[in-house]
Design a binder for these strands. Structure first.
Lengths: 330, 330
DNA sequence: CCTATTCACGCAAGAATTTGCAAGCACTTG
DNA sequence: CAAGTGCTTGCAAATTCTTGCGTGAATAGG
């Protein structure tokens, strides 16, 4: 009875062909006409054929702070793969130098009618601006999962690796090897995972708050921070990422010392290729596979309006001992 | 009634030609007339009939084959940054296991009305399916730039690093070090950059076609391929990516030999952290920074309807000598 | 006052885009 | 399996925009 397409065509005063072209985003339709058809479509409450427009919503945004640290691309692959299996397509959004801010991406994603968003890594709790767009998300009830990126008071489900335990493991390993003067290289002061690691550090025996350095997450940052620590006479350095650790190793060597004979270095993440470095890096592995899948499971549950616990899902990290740590010389 | 241009012309009391000239900033219109037309344009809310995809979202799709090889995230950062500077937002699309195909992404991007697309790496010329969606893009006249990914006959501008020269450099370096029995580890047979490297290999003196291995782009692939080559008694291995090279190094060691003392290994890309590996990897660097920016420049030019040479822009790679290559023992 | 030069502008040819027709395709129904 | 319904698509006509060229007006110079 309902010549659906024909009906719309008549209402707008164009041919079915044109409506069809608009529906499929085909070229050869003027903007004015396209607009008119789209409006009529909405007015008549046209149900778009399954595959198209209505379904465009099976998109999920994945927001990452950077791609330099290989842990983020790796995480993106895990999440992308898991989403693909559930029939979602992921859109990767990365902050770029002088480029798009997180807030811009949120706008974009909202505009693209995504079904949900996964935020991973690097939230800076202190900054004021960020809060605004989370509230926007909350307002729209857009399913959202946070990974390693706590934002309290907003009730988003969170998936994190247990930074406190991770730091404990690293410090414990060094202490077991006889190290007593242990330093720590962390990310920026307002980086939540770094804060949590700091807590664990300060809670450890013989911890010296003077041996904590905050820096940017880059090789050079690690280098600079570790140089100070080496000058303070540490024999072991715990880093908040593998990249920082590689920078630290370089710093130690630049100071004329050897890793691990004179100074031990521990990383964090266990990104790819850390077993190919010189020396192979001892590090604390984040179970990104499990975390990614958990995040996707929660997100999908949210999207399907299932109840999801709003608290934080903590994943246990794992110490991977390679060759950048050794018994302390007295 | 919708003689849009005519309507404006009538309102101002000039000919369509004049309005057209104003619209296109052509000379031959007096300042007063221009002003009048501009005003009328504003009043009537005239919209350019041309495809204004560009203004809509200023989105650009960046399609990558994977993220495991750090060169791709690095490239994504370059392109993303360059686009951001020009006021575009980039959407990163990656093929994932059992997930979204390139064709699906093209559909998605078309649907999102992107202003343009950059395809990088990993085109498989042989496969039949791929052609279809390039044609779709061509049909829609969507600005597109290909990076390291030749597709002939379609007239997309291309930016590539010169694989032939890169392979020549690598082989030349090994030969200069006295190596005579040189093997090559390449990607899949239908991977264009690998083919080009193969050509250079076969053109070299004393080249032995039996010492070429095709494999997947993964550490394990490199390992497997290099194992065969080592068994064939090569003293030097040229790899088509740094990841393959790391796999090759592992294979050499597994065979009880040392790198570089007994077997030299050369990578390709110069991804991040290749100076932290054991041994630091000798490799041929792709100038991804320059390439990324060139690709973006061309894309933006295309989006703004400027003329762009349809031929391939070849970038010269650069040999980075570190410690995975050494003089051949006799 | 007349002629030369310049410039804006319209005419109309031509290029490009939009649109409808009708054939064709996929899918359902009798 | 034919007939029908609803959507897609090749093609040609129609519409809309661009551009070369010529006209006429305005200005300047003689």
């Amino acid at each position: 009875m309902t010549r659906r397409l024909a009906e719309v065509a008549k209402k707008v005063g164009v041919s079915e062909a044109t409506v069809s072209r608009v529906l499929n985003g085909k070229p050869g339709v003027s903007e004015a006409t396209r607009e008119a058809v789209l409006t009529a479509l909405d007015v008549l409450g046209y149900e778009r054929p399954t595959q198209l427009r209505g379904d465009r919503a099976r998109l999920v945004g994945l927001v990452l702070p950077e791609l330099q640290n290989p842990i983020f691309p790796a995480f993106a692959e895990v999440v992308g793969g898991a989403l693909a299996q559930q029939g979602f397509t992921s859109l990767l959004c990365t902050r770029t130098v002088g480029g798009v801010s997180e807030a811009d991406y949120v706008d974009l994603l909202l505009q693209q009618q995504v079904s949900g968003v996964v935020f991973a890594g690097g939230f800076y709790a202190q900054a004021d601006a960020p809060h605004q767009h989370y509230e926007l998300i909350q307002e729209r009830k857009l399913p959202t999962v946070l990974v390693n990126a706590a934002v309290d008071h907003l009730g988003f489900p969170q998936v994190s690796s247990d930074d406190y335990v991770a730091a404990e493991m690293a410090i414990g390993h060094l202490r077991a090897l006889g190290h007593r003067r242990i330093g720590m290289v962390l990310g920026p002061r307002d980086h939540i995972p770094s804060r949590r690691k700091l807590e664990a550090f300060l809670a450890a025996e013989e911890a010296d708050p003077g041996l904590v350095e905050h820096t940017m997450f880059s090789l050079e940052g690690g280098h600079a921070a570790a140089t100070k620590l080496v000058n303070s006479g540490v024999t072991g350095i715990v880093c908040a990422s593998d990249i920082l650790a590689l920078g630290a190793i370089r710093a130690v060597r630049r100071a004329g010392l050897s890793v691990p004979d004179e100074v031990s270095v521990i990383g964090y993440d266990d990104s790819a290729m850390m077993n190919c470095t010189d020396p192979p890096l001892t590090t604390v592995r984040q179970p990104i596979d499990a975390m990614g899948r958990a995040a996707v499971d929660m997100l999908v549950a949210l999207i399907e309006r299932a109840a999801v616990p709003a608290d934080e899902l903590l994943f246990e990290p794992e110490l991977v001992v390679r060759a950048s740590t050794a018994r302390a010389r007295i």
